[in-house]
Design a protein around this nucleic acid. Structure first.
Lengths: 244, 244
DNA sequence: CGATCAGTTGAGAATGGTCAAATTCGGTGG
DNA sequence: CCACCGAATTTGACCATTCTCAACTGATCG
């Protein structure tokens, strides 16, 4: 079987699951229908029905909800290897919107194909289940951020988590990572005003903890950051799974 | 096949999925190992490994995390029909704790059995996948509550959501529901201090919107509540699923 | 009848929001 | 190359929400 460079999704899944050739073929098949989107374009709109999921292969996206007041809450940022709109497909309707944060490349996977794969390839179903559970674990950590951490701890914790996720797809190292987010994006993810977000970032910089600037996040004192936020990435790179 | 009164889980799943007799048998089998827990007892402890999941059949529980500061963030409350610790099983380790809020009855389902069922009963796997996705949708709504809604909106929205979930298992109607939560529980779920929680509840009562008192939540003005919180329960009672 | 725990209230402090005005910076057209 | 534009960032001043501390009430239970 011919196989070119493995996709981010394949990397992510096969780091945890010994997938058969047949299963790899299905994953490969998933990633057949390539599409590109421009910065700011909407991939999925809240309330929309009868939709596809996407697998992000290049660039960043984010999922969010808009309240009647006009306020925006960003749920999560998505990076290469992540599913987009998987939950929407399972529900046959989207409860959130997804927008391209940069120019992105993604593979469109129609509902029928996912459904098909789940019914006939149980081990693949387990892998998808694992991916959904991992997403949930991240959102849960986000709840803790918003509910019980100060603006500063929350910011540091969130940027550390993003770093850990990026590290899994080789897009970050110990020193930091390239990051296309604006301060407003970060503010809308962390439940802060963009003005306060700016002050918090300045304070973190002045304390010599981290720098968020010009498309790059730099960690200056990982040790202090980890202890200040009690960051633990176990839930991200967990080896275990139902398929061992 | 002999079948007594259907369990809450069976109710919840079969409202959405046409499950075969074989699948019903497996669900029934899941609920074979009944256990009871006293109020305040821990079912799952954060960091614990090698664990079982539970299916809650009677009473309330809640999942939470404790921060080094001692602060507690409650992730979700669980009611009859809900899985407990399903995500933990998928990860082989728990990233949160679960405690009995009342005296509860739950069925213990060992990891091996879940794993077994997922591999050999794809339609059941889809049902489980749906349950996990629904959990995630609730946590996402919780993120919006914490990030972008005022304490008052957040409280009203959360109590409405709880009502909608309870309605699905016949434990609530339009007027309200019995609710064993203390104000401190609510505060720890909504990211507020219990003092402020008390003031918010008083204000909601004084406006004639809802009453939270002595183990019961009463809605006085559902219309105003729904519009004030833009509450939409679609994601809870969604008919659709991958199995139609 | 203490003891304990949930709920209630007040006063002052802290965190974070809003409004408004610079300032920087990367493009873009002349 | 330079002037200009719009978006992102930065800062100040003031305001609102929410927290903390502390005291007090009320119910429940052995």
């Amino acid at each position: 079987m011919k196989r070119t460079v493995p996709s981010p999704l394949q990397l992510k899944l096969s780091a945890r699951f010994a997938l058969s050739d047949e299963e790899l073929t299905i994953i490969h098949h998933f990633e057949r229908c390539r599409r590109t989107f421009l910065t700011g374009q909407e991939l999925i709109h809240e309330g929309q029905g009868n939709l596809s999921a996407f697998i992000l292969s290049k660039g960043w996206a984010f999922s969010y909800k808009i309240l009647p007041s006009g306020n925006r809450q960003i749920i999560e940022f998505q990076i290469p290897g992540d599913f987009l709109g998987l939950r929407s497909v399972l529900f046959h309707a989207s409860d959130h919107s997804i927008e391209a944060l940069t120019h992105i490349e993604a593979s469109e996977v129609p509902t029928s194909e996912i459904s098909e794969a789940l019914l006939h390839h149980p081990r693949l179903a387990s892998a998808v289940l694992w991916a959904v559970a991992r997403d949930e674990a991240m959102v849960v950590e986000h709840v803790v951020d918003l509910g019980r951490r100060s603006a500063e701890e929350r910011t540091a914790h969130f940027l550390l988590e993003l770093g850990a996720r990026l590290k899994l797809v080789k897009m970050a190292d110990k020193t930091g990572y390239d990051c296309p987010l604006t301060q407003s994006h970060l503010a809308d993810a962390l439940g802060l005003s963009s003005v306060h977000m700016n002050r918090v970032l300045r304070h973190l910089r002045e304390q010599g903890l981290l720098t968020f600037k010009k498309g790059r996040v730099v960690f200056h004192a990982l040790g202090r950051l980890n202890s200040m936020t009690s960051f633990d990435s176990t839930y991200l790179d967990q080896e275990g799974s139902l398929l061992q």
